[in-house]
Amino acid sequence: MKEIIMSLLTVFGVLIAATTIAAGLIWLERRLLGLWQDRYGPNRVGPFGLLQVLADMIKIFSKEDWIPPFADKPVFIIAPAVIMFTVLMTFAVIPFTRAVHVVDMNIGLLFFLGMSSLGVYSVTLAGWASDSKYSLLGGLRAAAQMLSYEVYMGLSLMGVVMLSGSFNLREIVEAQKGLWFCIPQFLGFAVFLIAGVAETHRLPFDLPEAESELVAGFHSEYSGMKFGMFFVGEYLGITLISAMIATLFFGGWLGPVLPPIIWFLIKMFVFICFFILLRAALPRPRYDQLMSYGWKVLFPLSLLNLVVTGGILLAR
């Protein structure tokens, strides 16, 4: 009984923490963008503008939730739920500390890859169900982009798996006790980072949205909380990829002096801020550039990483 209550508490704790962080990221992103553009960003509502998030939530909840008459209604409704679902499910396998995790799965990494693949459905279906030319183009771009980058993302992680000899994320973290995998697997880390940006379709790889050409891409027709779910889903995605980078390459909760959970959060936030810095600094590439970069650069690099890592391991 106590175990059930404990695991329920963990589940809800993780859920609430993840969504809160995602919501807070909206504020954080605006403040950081302001900082890097020599502005303030939201600073009027509450201390440091923190309550801006609350104000935005009130606004987005009270907005008209409109479904266009030409849309495919059921699919249109399901699409935003899918992204929330897949991302939140992935949080289940992340070991925040040695003790704090929802489920300690021995195929955790595969679960992560599987769930992030399912996330493609969200944007593709949203684009298709909207029955609008911009949305459809956005959805098509999203499908091609995410399917492609999934390949190198998976391949780039194989080095980590080889080094640690496990798909269990907790074991992968523990395998980094001596040396964080970012050193031996630097190439894998770089590919995973870039593929992660593409998977969450964040700037500079936000081609499915591309407001300058596609209005808002796959979510052009969305409004109200349905739009809000895409929005939160995107920030959850950032949090997840940052958490995964921390887990896979930077030793997860490992660190001296401070408690393990703090170490984990610090590492995660550094990467979240890096994601925001990317947005502040880099322009969006053309779509063909995105695809050729993926297949002509990242794909060979991840294969090379795999071969070299395998070769060294075999030689040892």
Partner: peptide, 22 residues
Amino acid sequence: SILRTLWTVLLHTFRKRATVLY
């Protein structure tokens, strides 16, 4: 150049803000 851009933008953290708090 991408890395240099990232660095340059990051350095803006320490710049004075242009906003006038009307």
